[in-house]
Amino acid sequence: MKKQRPVNLQLNTISFPPAAITSILHRITGVALFFALMFVIWAWAVSVSSSDGFAMVQQQLNGWLGKFVAIGTISALSYHILGGIRHFIMDTGAWEELESGNNSAKAIIGLWILLTIVVGVVLW
């Protein structure tokens, strides 16, 4: 019996549905928030150590790298919250059908992109 299995699995040819993309992004943003927390803890620790430390953190956050990290952290947090709310609503029994699940996933991604643009414009 010959099995019809792929010999070379090419991940770039696989088309994920929107619900799968939102689930994967929810996990990725959770990991990103964990690593962003290290920067936040460092900034807090240095800023409360002395007035010079506070000035240094303020200078770092006003630079392009600080703004980039802040926008990325807020973007990851906003997506993670939106994805968490979507999962919570799905836990109540809503949006479990294929069409409504995909529509809610598309809405979450669209809202996340919009929020990231707004945050980027405001912080930059």
Rank of each mutant, 00 (worst) to 15 (best):
D91C: 06
A70M: 15
T73F: 11
H80I: 03
Y79G: 01
I71T: 08
I71M: 07
G83K: 04
I81T: 03
I85R: 04
T92Q: 14
I71C: 06
G101Q: 08
E96H: 13
H87T: 11
L98W: 15
T73C: 09
A70P: 13
S75D: 05
G83H: 06
G93Q: 09
L82W: 02
T73S: 09
I89Y: 11
E96R: 15
G84W: 00
G101P: 08
G84L: 03
T92R: 15
G84V: 00
Y79D: 01
I85C: 05
G93L: 10
S78P: 12
I85L: 12
T73L: 09
T73K: 03
T92M: 14
I85W: 02
G72S: 08
A94C: 12
Y79F: 12
I74F: 10
E97I: 10
A76Y: 03
F88P: 00
Y79I: 01
Y79A: 02
I71K: 05
I74A: 02
M90L: 05
W95M: 14
E97S: 15
Y79S: 01
I74S: 03
I74P: 01
T92C: 09
G72Y: 01
I81E: 00
S100M: 05
E96T: 15
G93F: 06
T73H: 06
H87Y: 11
F88S: 11
I89A: 14
A94F: 14
I85T: 05
S78K: 02
S78W: 05
I71G: 04
L77A: 13
I81R: 00
S78G: 06
A70Q: 13
R86L: 10
Y79T: 01
A70G: 11
D91I: 05
E97Y: 12
H87N: 14
I74Y: 05
Y79H: 07
G72P: 12
S78V: 08
E99F: 11
S75W: 02
L77T: 06
G84R: 04
D91K: 13
W95D: 13
I81K: 00
H87P: 00
A70T: 15
W95F: 15
M90P: 01
A70D: 11
E99I: 11
F88I: 08
E96W: 07
L98T: 14
D91Q: 13
